[in-house]
């Protein structure tokens, strides 16, 4: 018995060591660095809250903008992913599996390649504008499609959607048919079944999808840099530039810590609201 336990721990150990060495330790270090300072391009070990004060004042706007934008991306991605997974589970019939496979094959289309492709699609000379001009829906190209927060949202949603479908699809598959039919039998319409039976049972899948989309977009800096234009700076851009351009790791770390805390708080709030909203709707 003791032997088996030791063997099990030994088997887990290599993975755990990689996790500690290349995830936990660097993050702890990041957290510690966030209390240090930089003087003449050299790190000074200190215990100051200056970086957090700066994060709260100078970067307040950027953090708020990032949380709002990422929250919107997370929400839109989750709603679309839920609708897609719902379609696959309940309405697509035998096309369900083909649809799921199509969605999943776009999981790894190359992160940078996708951003680049959307850049081509959304430009004022891009295909979307061309198509709209051709059909006569617009007479001038829409210039705010690219280099705007809209472009960031579109690009991030298209990148994150397949990731968000995964946990929701798994959750919907876990719901048996009989309770759904029982609800119908007892007089519930589709919307009521959704609120009373389906959504409460796939809470974890939906919240995982939201958290994933939200975290990834809140920390992204490549998308705003490439398609966001000069006006759209997300906190990731500031973090990256503090590290890379200004060599100021402490303030970059403090920004990263604050962003993580803000996003965690936002996800906690969303999970709380999800449960409250469902309970409010069910009575």
């Amino acid at each position: 018995m003791r032997d088996a336990r030791l063997r099990a721990i030994a088997a887990v150990m290599p993975s755990l060591l990689v996790w500690i060495g290349f995830f936990l330790a660097p993050l702890v270090y990041l957290f510690i660095v966030s209390f240090w300072r930089v003087r003449q391009y050299r790190l000074v070990t200190d215990a100051t809250l200056d970086n957090y004060i700066a994060a709260g004042s100078e970067y307040q706007h950027a953090i708020l903008f990032t949380v709002v934008l990422a929250g919107f991306v997370g929400l839109l991605t989750t709603v679309l992913a839920f609708a897609l997974a719902y379609l696959i589970r309940f309405h697509a019939g035998r096309f369900g599996n083909a649809l799921l496979l199509t969605v999943l094959t776009t999981l790894f289309g190359g992160y940078l390649v996708k951003i680049y492709a959307w850049k081509g699609l959304l430009g004022s000379d891009g295909i979307v504008n061309r198509a709209l001009l051709e059909t006569g829906l617009i007479s001038q190209p829409i210039t705010w499609l690219l280099y705007s927060p809209i472009a960031v949202v579109i690009t991030l949603v298209s990148f994150l959607l397949p990731y968000a479908v995964l946990p929701i699809n798994a959750a919907l598959r876990g719901i048996a048919d009989a309770p759904i039919e029982a609800a119908r039998d007892l007089g519930a319409r589709p919307v009521r079944i959704l609120i009373d039976v389906i959504l409460p049972q796939c809470e974890r899948g939906v919240l995982t999808a939201f958290a994933l989309a939200f975290f990834i977009s809140a920390g992204d800096y490549v998308t705003p840099q490439l398609v966001g234009g000069p006006e759209t700076f997300m906190i990731g851009n500031f973090i990256q530039s503090q590290y890379v351009n200004r060599m100021n790791a402490p303030i970059g770390s403090a920004l990263a810590v604050v962003t993580m805390l803000a996003t965690l708080a936002a996800v906690a709030l969303v999970s709380f609201l999800y449960r409250r909203a469902l309970r409010a709707c069910s009575t």
């Binding site: 995830f23 990041l30 994933l212 975290f215 920390g219 990256q240 770390s253 990263a256």
Partner: peptide, 18 residues
């Protein structure tokens, strides 16, 4: 599984500075 949820930038910078 936590590292999958972390924004890549945060992990990348933590690793680079470490």
């Amino acid at each position: 599984s936590l590292p999958v949820m972390l924004p890549p930038l945060v992990l990348a910078l933590a690793l680079a500075s470490a």
